[in-house]
């Protein structure tokens, strides 16, 4: 298998996952604002912080208001991680893969791309919620078509690697941002606002219903962290992502060599898998959730660069 093809598959999956995550994030954040109309303009700042777009945004705008943030976040091409930029990048990768994707998948991605080229602020006039939930559904459709039409082979594994790595990073960033930026005044911890925000975090990960099945109506820091980091069965928990990632890398390693270097106990993959399999929310919060999440993100980056060196770099 050509390295270029592996690279395109990896990045197509990654950009699709990133765009989807952002669509969900915007939706939830908007929702949160509507439900809790404090009117404070800085309520939007967290969105920029979670995605790391704050500095770039500040280069173009002084004080964020809803419209500017939504535009910047959704279809600003100067923002390389706006949803539109991600869709463009995903489609550009898909184009070179076209002959290897199912025609249904290509058609879905290409139609999404063509539609998104028409976006302007007017799309929000019909309702921001409607726009983002429709968009999220379209990403789900892409995912569904991938699963329904692509053979499970090394190519699919490279897509899985891209998706899962991106998702694990996003989950950890999401938790971190809540911990850091959404943390309200001390007296509010455990209060209504806090609970609502944790619910929003769960919703961002499409995890609210799944969470309730396990923990019922009780929404609090510890079980949420436990669920989003360590749950083995939920498809958007960091633990789940890492299990999938490791399995895909093992299959790739068997086909292409080099699995040992990648999932060796001392490698970033091995260390991250161990940390997530043994971890407990209480202990992690006790010794510093932020530090733990930083470690998760560093290890994800480490895995990414090993994958790049081992399989993707073609220069």
């Amino acid at each position: 298998m050509l390295r270029r093809i592996a690279d395109h598959l990896f990045w197509m999956a990654r950009y699709l996952e990133r765009a989807e995550w952002r669509a969900r994030l915007a939706d939830v954040n908007y929702h949160l604002l509507v439900e809790n109309p404090t009117g404070e303009p800085q309520s939007w700042a967290p969105l920029l912080a979670i995605t790391g777009d704050g500095e770039l945004f500040a280069e173009y705008h002084d004080a964020p208001n809803e419209a500017q943030v939504l535009d910047f976040f959704t279809f600003e091409l100067r923002n390389p991680s706006s949803i539109l930029s991600c869709i463009n990048a995903a489609r550009e990768n898909a184009r070179s893969l076209r002959h290897r994707l199912s025609s249904e998948l290509w058609l879905e991605i290409n139609t999404l791309y063509l539609d998104s080229q028409q976006w302007s602020h007017a799309v929000f006039e019909q309702g921001v919620y409607g726009f983002f939930s429709e968009l999220r559904n379209r990403f789900h459709r892409v995912g569904g078509i991938s699963h329904a039409t692509l053979p499970r082979d090394i190519e699919f594994d490279f897509m899985t690697v891209g998706t899962m790595l991106e998702r694990a990073e996003n989950v950890s960033r999401l938790l971190d941002s809540k911990y850091h930026y959404l943390l309200p005044r001390l007296e509010d911890v455990g209060g209504t606002v806090d609970r609502m925000q944790w619910a929003a975090v769960l919703r961002s990960a499409s995890a609210l219903e799944a969470y309730r099945r396990v923990y019922g109506n009780q929404i609090a820091v510890e079980p949420v962290v436990e669920f989003l980091l360590f749950d083995a069965g939920f498809p958007r928990s960091a633990r789940f992502c890492i299990d999938e990632l490791e399995a895909a890398l093992e299959r790739i390693g068997r086909a292409a060599g080099g699995s040992r270097e990648i999932s060796d106990a001392a490698s970033p993959m091995g260390r991250l898998a161990a940390a997530l399999r043994a971890g407990k929310a209480g202990a992690v919060i006790g010794s510093g959730l932020h530090e733990f999440l930083m470690e998760v993100q560093d290890l994800c980056a480490g895995i990414g660069s090993i994958i790049f060196d081992k399989y993707l770099r073609f220069e």
Partner: peptide, 12 residues
């Protein structure tokens, strides 16, 4: 490489 032609695959 060495006056031969190669393609870059995931296994080298």
């Amino acid at each position: 490489v060495d006056h031969k032609l190669y393609m870059k695959t995931v296994d080298g």
